[in-house]
Design a protein around this nucleic acid. Structure first.
Length: 391
DNA sequence: TCTGGGGTCCTAGGACCC
DNA sequence: TCTGGGGTCCTAGGACCC
């Protein structure tokens, strides 16, 4: 192998951490998630999975399938602490570390045999280290590129190790099957079936040009690559743009524009805090509305100035709401700060200079307080005065 | 049985500029 | 008097993933 990549995936991560912290739930079907009427399963233990419970399933359905399940509220602080422990072991094991999410990461193990031995032996060693030091199990995939390694880690779970020899990659792809290939969701799958293609072999039998013609430039090339075990290049490079978003689902549905506006006001502040905390400013604000029938609309606005102050964000979002809201029941409302970019010296920025001294001080004071962990909500009628900070 | 919350990327049409 | 093609930005919506 000229290149070797590992994909390391923590098994049922949130559930495993809860079991670690509370061994009494070990062996029981465990569901992580809120207990609300519109909540979904975040993660669940393997015992719960045997009842047909799975991530993203509605909680009501999950509890119907497994009424005796133990439901635990997610504790993200604890998970991210545990995640850091694991990631630090992985990142010091080999170079080319790339964390993909709270519970998975890639390693580049190319030309590393001298350090930890052949890839299989090294992967076993890494798994043992993680188990010994954190008490958690991982599944590891080893292959010549990241895409295959990612599929491989999912092939045997939990506590699995799957190695894909380069000469058997197409065979492996066929065994995984079209339905489980990364990047092919329900919609793409249906459009593939509608074109009379039933599996990975059918797709492989077509020329790249035919696939591009049948689908689109991007999807055609993507399909052509993945059925051959060629990395489509999804896990490389820096992301071009970023966004920060916040959304809330209501139960029951909300019909009052004033109530919606209050939520927008709160979310504008949340996002403003997060943006300031991460030293980013945004180019645009987006609003998302999902009505009772699940129909979802979004709109956005790009002002001529950069955004980070809660009052600017709120003003735009509130205007979008007034323009778009159709007076029917709303189940979800969301706010997005789009096209964010790093701005180290926000205080020095043009917009801040245009603002009144008072307003600037207020934003700064709120930022400081929010950093100190205090929960501050500005009174909504005021843009330039400090309220008595209820709640 | 309905369907969270946080993200990224793609598509397609229109505006505008060269 | 009719009309090119490329590039970039903006918007709305869709797809996918963890």
């Amino acid at each position: 192998m000229s290149t070797v990549f590992f994909h390391i995936d923590l098994d049922a991560f949130f559930a495993s951490v809860e079991i670690l912290d509370n061994p009494r739930v070990k062996g029981k079907p465990l569901i992580i998630g809120h207990r609300g009427p519109r909540s979904v399963v975040s993660t669940c233990s393997y015992e719960a999975r045997s009842y047909g419970v799975h991530s993203a399933q509605s909680m009501s359905e999950a509890l119907r399938r497994c009424p005796e399940a133990v439901v635990v509220e997610p504790n993200f602080k604890r998970y991210s602490q545990k995640s850091k422990e694991v990631m630090s072991i992985i990142s010091s094991f080999a170079p080319g570390f790339m964390q993909m999410s709270i519970d998975e990461a890639f390693l580049d193990y190319s030309n590393m045999e001298k350090i930890h031995g052949l890839a299989g032996k090294a992967a076993r060693k890494l798994k043992e280290m993680i188990k010994a030091e954190t008490g958690l199990t991982v599944s590891v995939g080893v292959a010549e590129n990241r895409y295959l390694a990612k599929l491989a880690s999912d092939y045997h779970k939990p506590d699995g190790l799957t190695i894909v020899p380069p000469e058997r990659k197409e065979e492996f792809i066929d065994k995984v099957g079209l339905e489980k290939l990364w990047g092919i969701g329900e919609s793409t799958l249906n459009s593939i079936y509608r074109k009379g293609l039933r599996n990975t072999k059918d797709i492989r039998s077509l020329e790249k040009e035919s696939l591009v013609h049948l689908f689109s430039e991007n999807l055609g090339n993507f399909l052509y690559s993945i059925v051959r075990g060629i990395d489509p290049g999804l896990f490389k490079g820096e992301a071009k743009s970023h966004s920060l978003s916040s959304e809330r689902t209501f139960y029951p549905d909300v019909y009052s524009i004033d109530a919606l506006d209050s939520f927008i006001f709160q979310m504008a502040q949340e996002l403003s805090f997060r943006a300031l905390g991460e030293h980013v400013v945004a180019r645009n604000v987006g609003l998302k509305i999902r009505y009772s029938d699940f129909s979802t609309y979004s709109c956005q606005y790009t002002p001529s100035y950069s955004l980070y102050s809660s009052s600017d964000i709120y003003k735009i979002a509130s205007r979008l709401l007034k323009e778009k809201y159709n007076n029917s029941g709303v189940r979800l409302i969301g706010l997005v700060l789009g096209s964010t970019y790093k701005a180290e010296e926000i205080e020095q920025m043009e917009l801040f200079r245009e603002k009144s001294e008072k307003e600037r001080k207020l934003e700064k004071a709120i930022l400081e307080l929010s950093k100190s962990g205090m929960k501050i909500i500005k009174a909504r009628s005021l843009d330039t005065e400090v309220s008595d900070n209820k709640q």
